[in-house]
C-alpha cells in the first residue's frame, strides 16, 4: 500500500466553548484512564473524540459533562470550571436512557421540568423539538413502541430542547442499524449547520467521525492520551451524499486508519 497522506493539521482555536486542561483520570486508585489531556472545543462546531475501545473517550466526555470527577486538571465551559452537570450542557446517551414508564413527551420535557418550567410552556417547546427530530405524532407513544432509531431521536430531542450551548453525544448511533445510522449522520450535519451549538461526539467509527466532524481528536489507549488532532478540509455546505465520495474524506479515513493501527493488539 501507499504511504499514508499527511493529515490536515489543526489550526489553533480562537473561540473555544469547552477547554480541557491537563486532565488526568485514575480509576480505583490504580487504572489510569486518561493522562494529561489538553484540548479545546471550538464554538459552533462538531468535534469528535475518536479512538479504539479502552482509550477513555467516553470517560473524557462524562468528565466534561460533570458526571464523573477528574483526578487532576480541569474543564472549563464558557470560562467557568466544571464541578458537576450544568444547564449549558446536554447529554445524549449511548443506550438512549429513556424512562420506559414515561411517554415520549414526558421523556423529552424531563430536562425542562427539572429547571422548573411550567407544564404548558415546556410541552410547547418539547413538541417543537420532537417535530425537529422528525417524530411529530409520536408524542404520546412509549419507548417500547418505538424502534431503536426513533428512541435515539427522542434522546436527541430531549437534549436539544433544554437549549444548551454544548450537546454531548456518547456513541449515539452505535445501537442503531447501518441504514438508519447513515440517515442520522446526514441529519446531524444539517442540525449542526442550523443550530448554533457546539457538538462533542464520541465514536469508534473512523468513517463516522470523518463524515460528521469539523475537528477530530484522536485518542490512543492505555492510558488515554491525545494522539492527534485533525481537521478534515471538507466542504459540507453542499450535497451531504457527496461527502462520502470526496477525495479528502477517503484520504482522511485512510490516514486515521494508518495512525490507529499501531495501537491495536
Amino acid at each position: 500500500m501507499n504511504a499514508p497522506i499527511a493529515l490536515t493539521a489543526a489550526r489553533p482555536v480562537t473561540d473555544s466553548v469547552v477547554e480541557v486542561r491537563n486532565l488526568d483520570k485514575i480509576y480505583a486508585g490504580t487504572v489510569q484512564a486518561l493522562k494529561d489531556i489538553t484540548v479545546d472545543f471550538p464554538r459552533g462546531q462538531l468535534t469528535s473524540l475518536l479512538g479504539p475501545s479502552g482509550c477513555g473517550k467516553t470517560t473524557l466526555l462524562k468528565i466534561i459533562a460533570g458526571l464523573l470527577p477528574a483526578s487532576a486538571g480541569e474543564v472549563r465551559v464558557n470560562g467557568k470550571v466544571v464541578s458537576g452537570p450544568g444547564p449549558e450542557r446536554a447529554f445524549v446517551f449511548q443506550d438512549f436512557a429513556l424512562m420506559p414508564w414515561a411517554s415520549v413527551i414526558k421523556n423529552v420535557t424531563f430536562g425542562l421540568e427539572m429547571r422548573g418550567m411550567a407544564k404548558a410552556e415546556r410541552e410547547e417547546i418539547a413538541r417543537r423539538s420532537i417535530a425537529r427530530v422528525g417524530l411529530a405524532g409520536f408524542e404520546n407513544r412509549y419507548p417500547h413502541e418505538l424502534s431503536g432509531g426513533m428512541r435515539q431521536r427522542v434522546g436527541l430531542a430531549r437534549a436539544l430542547c433544554v437549549d444548551a450551548d454544548v450537546v454531548m453525544m456518547d456513541e449515539p448511533f452505535s445501537a442503531v442499524d447501518e441504514q438508519n445510522r447513515r440517515k442520522f449522520q446526514e441529519e446531524l450535519l444539517t442540525l449542526v449547520a442550523q443550530e448554533k451549538k457546539t457538538f462533542i461526539f464520541v465514536t469508534h467509527s473512523i468513517e463516522e467521525a470523518v463524515y460528521v466532524s469539523d475537528r477530530i481528536v484522536l485518542l490512543s489507549p492505555r492510558p488515554g492520551r491525545i494522539a492527534e488532532i485533525i481537521e478534515p478540509d471538507i466542504n459540507r455546505d453542499g450535497d451531504t451524499e457527496a461527502i462520502r465520495r470526496h477525495p479528502v474524506y477517503l484520504d482522511t479515513v485512510d490516514a486515521i486508519w494508518y495512525s490507529l493501527k499501531t495501537y491495536l493488539d
Binding site: L67, P85, G86, R89, D95, M99, P100, F110, M114, R115
Partner: peptide, 29 residues
C-alpha cells in the same frame, strides 16, 4: 437501577431527591 438513567437525571440537573422519586423508584417498581 440502570446507571445511564441516573446519569441522565443528573445531567439534566435533577436534584438527588428528584432522581430518587422520578427515576430510581419508577425504575425499581
Amino acid at each position: 437501577t440502570p446507571v445511564s438513567l441516573t446519569e441522565m437525571g443528573r445531567s439534566f440537573l435533577a436534584p438527588r431527591r428528584k432522581v430518587i422519586s422520578r427515576i430510581i423508584l419508577p425504575a425499581a417498581s
